[in-house]
Design a protein around this nucleic acid. Structure first.
Length: 421
DNA sequence: TCTGGGGTCCTAGGACCC
DNA sequence: TCTGGGGTCCTAGGACCC
């Protein structure tokens, strides 16, 4: 039986989430900013039409924003996270074979449908999400993940229904002719230039090339891409639990010099990443720490200090990782520099169901696990940040939140949307 | 003046071992 | 003066994605 992949992708996700609770934003150009209100990370179609690019620093587009009265919002990740969870739960009811690819995207396998065509089924998914959650999505159908991505691009840009299929051979040929290489999943400027050098300028030419020849120029990733757009599936659905690392980092609203201030931000990163680790029911065995100066700052050479730390035993205890990381931060900290960003990546992840004992010490894992579970439960019920570790103190003085953030409509009883009758 | 945060995969090259 | 060959593991860095 041939495979059917559906890629469900929310349209302008962050903007759509904001519009859900503030309908006045409908039809207006809207952008959402990154942490510290630095870059533009989401744009409404109206903002896209004003040629405001993705990931652009906001200050470079001040004039356009003022001229066209673009509505600017800080990001409200707890709102987006909550709505994303609701979408994914709903999608799971349409197919148990699902991969959550990002906050606003998921792949579904639909090849075991018998009574209904996959196109009609995709239409039904789209309508259900709109009806239950009020969020617009586009759906692409293809025999491989990469072709489903191509179909999704077509659904977003060249379809009235919001669903597009390239399941048929002739549709694939037609769509890929003239399809820009940089719109393919996994191809950006560098790779497209390399392909140009060997005479390949569109996706159809790549489809007709010899995979082993592409490998010579674009390594294994390129060979797989070539096979995928020919219709040979090489990329299976992946399980989120198989993640190899998880991390948390923050850039500072203003450059920091004092170790004590950097430690506070790092403590908050560690608190967040450990919460994530426990949520996915994993332990970690080691971690990677980094501290860097701004690559944009003039008058100071870019510095990125990195180091790796091992833990005596696999754990998800915030306190243990915090203590280990503080010691290592000293190794990469240079007192003379002004810093821009700090972060931690947890590695060597393993299921927390399996508890490893060390040879020379008896560790009471259960006690630590219970304590951490309690902290997570209270924070989940009472709102993030109710319980925290003392080292996270004064976090608001160093970690500014967005100035234009919308209320926590779905996350706090005190910020529910109000309806006037 | 102001430039995010969270990931993945691959490769080259160094360190080290026998 | 002449200084092997094969293997593994680790890390940094590049490229890419959303």
């Amino acid at each position: 039986m041939s495979l059917v992949f559906a890629l469900v992708d929310c349209n302008n996700f962050y903007v759509s989430c904001e519009r859900l609770f503030d309908p006045a934003l409908e039809g207006r150009p809207v952008v959402v900013l990154s942490n510290n209100d630095g870059c533009i990370v989401a744009r409404s179609n109206e903002a896209k039409r004003l040629n405001i690019p993705m990931a652009a620093p906001i200050y470079q587009y001040k004039k356009v924003i003022e001229k066209h009265k673009v509505h600017v919002l800080s990001s409200n990740y707890s709102l987006y996270g909550e709505l994303s969870k609701r979408i994914m739960d709903l999608l799971l009811s349409f197919s148990p074979d699902m991969e959550v690819y990002s906050i606003d995207e998921a792949f579904l396998r639909l090849d075991s449908l018998f009574a209904i065509s996959s196109f009609d089924y995709a239409l039904k998914i789209k309508k259900t999400i709109m009806k239950h959650l009020g969020l617009p999505v586009s759906i692409g159908l293809g025999p491989t993940k990469t072709l489903a991505k191509v179909a999704n691009y077509m659904a977003k840009n060249h379809s009235v229904s919001g669903v597009y299929s390239v399941l048929e051979w002739k549709d694939q040929e037609e769509v890929l002719r003239g399809f820009p290489l940089t719109k393919l999943w996994g191809v950006a400027k560098r790779s497209s230039l390399k392909l140009n050098k060997i005479g390949i300028y569109d996706a159809l030419q790549l489809r007709r090339a010899e995979p082993s020849f592409i490998r010579k120029h674009l390594t294994l990733t390129g060979e797989r891409l070539c096979l995928e757009i020919k219709g040979n599936s090489c990329l299976p659905l992946e399980d989120l639990r198989d993640k190899k690392s998880i991390g948390s980092s923050r850039s500072f609203p203003k450059d920091l010099k004092l170790l004590s201030e950097i430690e506070v931000v790092l403590a908050n990163c560690i608190f967040r990443v450990c919460e994530k680790l426990r949520l996915q029911k994993n332990f970690c065995q080691s971690f990677h720490l980094f501290l860097q100066t701004s690559p944009f700052r003039k008058g100071q050479k870019y510095y990125c200090g990195r180091t790796q730390g091992s833990l005596r035993y696999a754990t998800n205890d915030t306190r243990i990782i915090l203590t280990a990381a503080r010691g290592l931060l000293l190794e990469i900290y240079r007192p003379s520099l002004f810093y821009h960003k700090v972060g931690i990546v947890l590695l060597g992840l393993s299921p927390s169901t399996f508890v490893e004992q060390t040879l020379f010490e008896t560790v009471d894992h259960n006690k630590a696990i219970k304590l951490m579970e309690t902290v997570d439960r209270i924070n989940s019920r009472e709102g993030q940040g109710k319980l925290f570790i003392a080292r996270q103190k004064n976090k608001d003085s160093i970690q500014r939140t967005g100035k234009r953030k919308s209320p926590s409509y779905t996350g706090s009883w005190f910020e529910l949307a109000k309806v006037r009758c």
